[in-house]
Design a protein around this nucleic acid. Structure first.
Lengths: 191, 191
DNA sequence: GTCTATAATTCGATAGAC
DNA sequence: GTCTATCGAATTATAGAC
């Protein structure tokens, strides 16, 4: 009979407040751009507490970045609607609730941070590639998954980070209408 | 009779050496990741000289980032080959000579730096959008240009920065074969 | 034209009082 | 459990000697 969740029943409230502030700042500025002191000031709390709770900035980052993309089960996706479904899911990851902000945080951090890009590769390997492989019936599923991620990450880059006006101005439905068929094409159906 | 190029006939050699070192480090680490001191150490030269020549880190960055994409003239591109041509040109920008490294530098810097993303938007508006508008005969050329850039930047992100294995492993010809038709599709022809 | 020295910040991390 | 104080290193930028 294990007593309970091991060791976490301490002072959970401030810990959670730290995590939420960290998620927001890491989301806006990336790993290198957000400092421990800035995060502490937003809580507000003393910077030393962050070190005490999470050990280091790296520890805080790992705790703040939840990496479950919550991708739908391949069997639940009709193959001819997969492109649309994946685009909608991806938009939700970027514009949705805080609990799904892990991928945006990682993408913003990965350009200048080695650990962040390592984590993205791990997510690709463990979550994205298997899902694509489960949807398509064709052979080179890994390459197809890479092409799909290229298109979706490029969309996120131009829409949320670079903020290119024509890409920002598209409505969600326009994005689905324009990008969905491309994803569908990579999966293997007709255009 | 203007005498000569105004004011630059000073000590051009070190200035050029500084620029080349700056381009390499900005290319590898982005604006925030590359420091003036690191650049100076690579030349090698005293960090103060960089400030003397370029005024500030911002000034050095502006001088190092040449922003001529050397896009081909729209009239020289057969419309049914435009997708292939643009993909090859884009790959050349990333894997080519130093003089074309401006865009990679900007992309690496833009994630964490406001000025860099401003410059990317300016390049999009002044170089990319007009070129696409000159190729396609359809109406919403700006949106199409945005979609094309989304795809090409996403490719660069996954291939050169995140280094996702399936995207890295593609040969140049595979990239052209896979991405070219998508660009062609955005321009307006058949798939 | 090139350099030394240093100012003024900011960073992550630590030590220790209470 | 929370804080003050501080360390050591790194940053951009400036002042001024030679």
């Amino acid at each position: 009979m294990t007593k309970a969740p091991a060791k976490i029943p301490k002072s959970d409230k401030t810990r959670q407040a730290i995590l939420e502030a960290a998620q927001r700042l890491f989301y806006e500025r990336g790993y290198d751009g957000a400092s421990v002191r800035q995060i502490a000031k937003e809580v507000p709390i003393d910077p030393a507490m962050i070190m005490r709770y999470f050990g280091s900035k790296e520890g805080l980052f790992s705790a703040a970045v939840l990496i479950d993309l919550k991708l739908p089960n391949p069997e639940d996706i009709p193959q001819d609607k997969a492109g649309e479904r994946l685009v909608r899911h991806f938009l939700m990851l970027w514009e949705g609730e805080r609990s799904t902000l892990g991928l945006p945080i990682l993408l913003r951090s990965a350009v200048s941070n080695q650990d962040a890009s390592d984590k993205i590769r791990a997510i690709f390997e463990k979550q994205v590639a298997p899902t694509i492989a489960g949807i398509t019936s064709l052979d080179d599923a890994d390459t197809r998954a890479g092409l799909i991620v290229s298109q979706l990450f490029g969309l996120a880059l131009c829409r949320y980070i670079l903020r290119l006006p024509p890409v920002v101005d598209m409505t969600e439905e326009e994005v689905v209408a324009r990008i969905g068929p491309i994803i569908q094409h990579h999966i293997g159906s007709s255009v």
